[in-house]
Amino acid sequence: MTAWPHLDYTADRPTIESCHMVSQLVGKLPTRLHPWVNHGWHVALRVSPRGFVTRSMPAGDGRSFTVEIDMRDGCLRIACDNGGAWQVGFVGKTIAVLQSDLRKTLEDASLPAPLHGGPNEVIDAVLFARDDTARPWDADAALRLHGAFAAADRVFNAFRSLYLGKSSPSHMFWGSFDLAVTRFSGRRAPPHPGGFPNLPDHVTREAYSHEVISAGFWPGGGGVDEAAFYAYAYPSPDELGDAAASPESAYWHADLGEFVITYADVAASNDPDAALMAFLQSTYDAAAERLDWPTDCAVRQPSYGSPAQTV
Score class of each variant (00 low, 15 high):
residue 6 H to E: 06
residue 7 L to R: 02
residue 7 L to M: 05
residue 11 A to S: 12
residue 12 D to E: 12
residue 16 I to D: 08
residue 18 S to Q: 02
residue 20 H to R: 14
residue 20 H to W: 05
residue 24 Q to E: 06
residue 26 V to R: 06
residue 29 L to W: 08
residue 31 T to I: 10
residue 31 T to M: 02
residue 32 R to N: 11
residue 33 L to M: 06
residue 33 L to S: 11
residue 33 L to K: 01
residue 40 G to M: 12
residue 41 W to H: 09
residue 44 A to D: 13
residue 46 R to N: 09
residue 48 S to W: 01
residue 51 G to A: 04
residue 52 F to H: 02
residue 53 V to K: 04
residue 56 S to I: 00
residue 60 G to W: 10
residue 60 G to N: 12
residue 61 D to Y: 08
residue 62 G to C: 00
residue 63 R to V: 01
residue 68 E to A: 01
residue 69 I to S: 04
residue 69 I to G: 03
residue 74 G to D: 06
residue 81 D to M: 08
residue 86 W to C: 06
residue 88 V to L: 00
residue 93 K to L: 10
residue 98 L to D: 01
residue 98 L to A: 00
residue 99 Q to F: 12
residue 101 D to F: 11
residue 102 L to A: 03
residue 104 K to M: 11
residue 105 T to N: 11
residue 111 L to I: 10
residue 111 L to K: 04
residue 112 P to C: 01
residue 113 A to N: 02
residue 117 G to D: 05
residue 120 N to E: 13
residue 121 E to V: 07
residue 122 V to F: 09
residue 123 I to S: 07
residue 125 A to R: 07
residue 125 A to I: 03
residue 130 R to N: 14
residue 134 A to T: 06
residue 134 A to Y: 05
residue 135 R to P: 00
residue 136 P to K: 15
residue 137 W to C: 00
residue 146 H to P: 05
residue 147 G to L: 10
residue 149 F to R: 01
residue 150 A to D: 09
residue 151 A to G: 12
residue 152 A to V: 13
residue 153 D to W: 09
residue 155 V to T: 12
residue 155 V to L: 07
residue 156 F to V: 09
residue 156 F to W: 00
residue 157 N to A: 14
residue 158 A to P: 04
residue 159 F to W: 15
residue 170 S to F: 04
residue 171 H to E: 13
residue 177 F to C: 03
residue 179 L to K: 01
residue 181 V to A: 12
residue 183 R to P: 06
residue 188 R to E: 04
residue 191 P to D: 08
residue 193 P to T: 06
residue 196 F to P: 11
residue 198 N to F: 06
residue 199 L to A: 13
residue 206 E to M: 01
residue 206 E to F: 00
residue 208 Y to C: 05
residue 212 V to H: 02
residue 218 W to Y: 10
residue 220 G to E: 00
residue 220 G to H: 05
residue 222 G to P: 09
residue 223 G to N: 11
residue 224 V to E: 04
residue 225 D to C: 02
residue 230 Y to S: 12
residue 230 Y to R: 11
residue 231 A to I: 15
residue 231 A to E: 04
residue 232 Y to M: 11
residue 235 P to E: 04
residue 235 P to L: 02
residue 236 S to G: 14
residue 237 P to G: 02
residue 237 P to F: 03
residue 240 L to W: 08
residue 249 S to V: 10
residue 252 W to R: 04
residue 253 H to K: 12
residue 254 A to N: 10
residue 255 D to Y: 07
residue 257 G to P: 02
residue 259 F to S: 05
residue 263 Y to D: 04
residue 264 A to Y: 03
residue 264 A to C: 13
residue 268 A to E: 09
residue 269 S to F: 02
residue 273 D to L: 14
residue 273 D to C: 13
residue 274 A to P: 08
residue 276 L to P: 05
residue 278 A to D: 15
residue 281 Q to Y: 06
residue 281 Q to E: 10
residue 284 Y to K: 13
residue 284 Y to F: 15
residue 284 Y to W: 15
residue 287 A to K: 10
residue 290 R to C: 08
residue 293 W to M: 08
residue 294 P to W: 10
residue 294 P to T: 11
residue 295 T to R: 15
residue 296 D to P: 11
residue 297 C to Q: 15
residue 297 C to H: 14
residue 299 V to D: 11
residue 299 V to C: 13
residue 303 S to I: 14
residue 304 Y to G: 00
residue 304 Y to F: 10
residue 307 P to W: 02
